[in-house]
Design a protein around this nucleic acid. Structure first.
Lengths: 162, 162
DNA sequence: AAATCTATATATAAACT
DNA sequence: TAGTTTATATATAGATT
């Protein structure tokens, strides 16, 4: 935006595009860091680019060990699930309810769990990183999802193939 | 930053913190949109806050339908896996190799798949959204991960319990 | 509480090294 | 190609409504 105002469109010049990407990538991460610090919220930014073999995942890779150790001490998110369900029925006073739910969610580190699960299942984090407790928990979670998927497939088979 | 320079630390005043969050949240999303457009890259930003029941997931929720329909036509990411493995052996000319891999990854929409998988498994997107083809694919992926987890658990049992 | 308005801090495009 | 500089566009803190 400085020196000259740039049109918001794909930059066709390769080196200019790359330069812009590098500058703006660091700018975006900086902004993410700031909002996190200033507002005490959790944020995550993922940038895929042709300039790096891995996506730039902020703040996850550097923080992975901390996230994993939190995950290890976490209980199954049962109460959390219930809380979320309650929300969908009570749309009045949404924010108050939500604030409570978010606090609960933060307390029991559901976010960290889903991040770690995501990273493991998508191959970005090796299962070797997980403790035996993590693995039991993850095994249960994955099995549960598999059952849901299977039920859904049976539903399709009953309705569309018979 | 305007009017006065603000110290980069948690804002303890509730309403000030909320106001700052709202302003910066939109700023961050705008920046993410810009880098995406200008540089032709894929990016994703997730913001958890106590002010909204769901995390602000950009650009995923609005784009979910498009992402899902891409996912439906996707082949298993076998070639992609191989490509990524090759990379870890060939650290010379990293960027050239990476550029190819990224293009492949973009072409076969691996990113979209992992996003959708993440959303489904973490409960943010109902399995009802998926076609029968998606479900078969996801079922295979989840089963595969379950086998890896089980092997890992057996490893622990052999080494630490017997 | 949310929207609008400024003055100022910050981000960044282009130039230069 | 990457780092540094600088002029300008943008983002945003605080004030106001």
């Amino acid at each position: 935006m400085p020196r000259s105002k740039v049109k918001l469109a794909y930059i066709s010049n390769d080196s200019a595009r790359r330069t812009t990407f590098r500058k703006r990538e660091s700018g975006l991460i900086k902004k993410a860091e700031e909002i996190t610090t200033l507002c005490g919220v959790e944020a995550c930014a993922i940038l895929y680019s042709p300039y790096s073999p891995e996506p730039n995942v902020w703040p996850c890779p550097l923080d992975a060990q901390r996230v994993i150790s939190r995950f290890r001490n976490m209980a199954p998110p049962e109460q959390n699930r219930k809380m979320v369900d309650q929300q969908s029925f009570a749309r009045q006073r949404l924010e108050k309810t939500t604030e409570k739910a978010t606090k609960l969610r933060t307390e029991n580190q559901h976010n960290e769990m889903t991040q770690v699960m995501y990273q493991c299942l998508s191959g970005r984090l090796g299962f070797e990183c997980l403790s035996i407790g993590d693995l039991y928990y993850l095994s249960g979670l994955v099995s549960q999802n598999l059952r849901v998927i299977d039920r859904r497939l049976e539903f399709f088979q009953r309705h569309y193939s018979g």
